[in-house]
């Protein structure tokens, strides 16, 4: 870990928050449990403003509704109550202004790496040469050079996720949504991906919302960390991470911040566990 990073360390300051990009006000989400017909409140009265070109990491206990919130931003899930808007317009469904990266990659196995990445532009009827030029740019930035003609099945998990990230960026969305992007990768791969892609996120100039369950991922990558409570989700922590990039996992400032977030998160997890134990008739 003490090895010199491959790229030139450019100590970039954290950009000042821009105009509000995504505004969530009084968001509620309720599900009907299919088994017992009970109403489950996943998210309750949630307010969150995400600013233009801000990198926000959302973290929370598992099952807290953070992915549901991300899917609402993407337009995959409806909101039960409240308003959710982007650039002042309500979010009504998915669209190419928001790119998505899933934990499970969800690549198209019948398309090569290059063709996976150009697909979004093909859908928008961008001429092939132009689409390929755009794709090649992101292939370079995500470290996929040389793999253009490979099929996804031949790639490792880390490479697959690079393809998914390049694919989401290639059609130039304003917002990129990352749903536990490194969750399916082993620790080594994850470490190198986070390090290699640090500059990518800055150069992309996008508003990025990442859902994760890893505190270190959140603190190393994001401009701002938001912690959701256990279900129903509320915001219990919301702080900017004013540490210059590139960030080192061993930097005391990073470690301090990680400890701070971990304390908030583990207090919440404890509370959730106690509540669940209380509900357990055996009471263990």
């Amino acid at each position: 870990m003490s090895a010199e990073p491959a790229f030139k360390p450019r100590l970039a300051a954290i950009p000042d928050p821009g105009e509000p990009k995504i505004v969530a006000e009084g968001i509620n989400k309720t599900f009907i449990n299919r088994e017992n017909g009970e109403e489950v409140v996943a998210i309750e009265n949630l307010d969150l403003t995400i600013r233009d070109q801000e990198f926000v990491a959302i973290i929370g206990p598992s099952g807290c509704g953070k992915s549901t919130f991300l899917y609402m931003l993407a337009g995959f899930e409806d909101i039960s109550a409240g308003t959710l808007s982007m650039d002042g317009h309500p979010v009504t469904g998915p669209g190419p202004d928001r790119g998505i990266v899933f934990q499970e990659f969800i690549l198209f196995p019948w398309r090569t790496v290059l063709r996976n990445i150009t697909l979004g532009l093909e859908m928008q009827k961008v001429p092939r040469a132009e689409a390929e030029a755009a794709a090649r740019k992101w292939i370079g930035l995500t470290g996929l050079t040389g793999f253009e003609d490979a099929y996804p099945a031949t790639l490792s998990g880390g490479m697959k996720q690079r393809v998914a990230i390049a694919r989401a960026l290639a059609y130039n969305p304003e917002v990129v949504l990352l749903d536990e992007p490194f969750g399916a990768l082993d620790v080594q791969t994850k470490f190198y991906m986070i390090r290699d892609l640090q500059t990518l996120w800055q150069e992309a100039h996008k508003t990025i919302v990442m859902v994760t369950h890893s505190v270190s991922e959140a603190v190393i990558m994001a401009d701002r960390v938001v912690v959701f409570s256990a279900r129903p989700a509320r915001i219990i922590y919301d702080e900017r991470i004013d540490i210059a990039r590139p960030r080192d996992a061993l930097d005391p400032k990073v470690i301090d911040r990680q400890r701070e977030v971990t304390e908030v998160l583990s207090a919440e997890v404890d509370k959730q566990m106690r509540r669940e134990a209380g509900r357990n008739p055996l009471g263990n």
Binding site: A74, G75, G95, I106, F108, L119, M123, Y171
Partner: peptide
């Protein structure tokens, strides 16, 4: 074909026809 495959296509702005020919048929 996972629900997420269709989600990816829709967030690329795919029309119904595009989803059919570029996702469903090859899938």
């Amino acid at each position: 074909l996972s629900k997420r495959v269709f989600w990816v296509a829709r967030s690329m702005g795919a029309s119904h026809t595009q989803t059919f020919f570029k996702v469903i048929v090859p899938g």
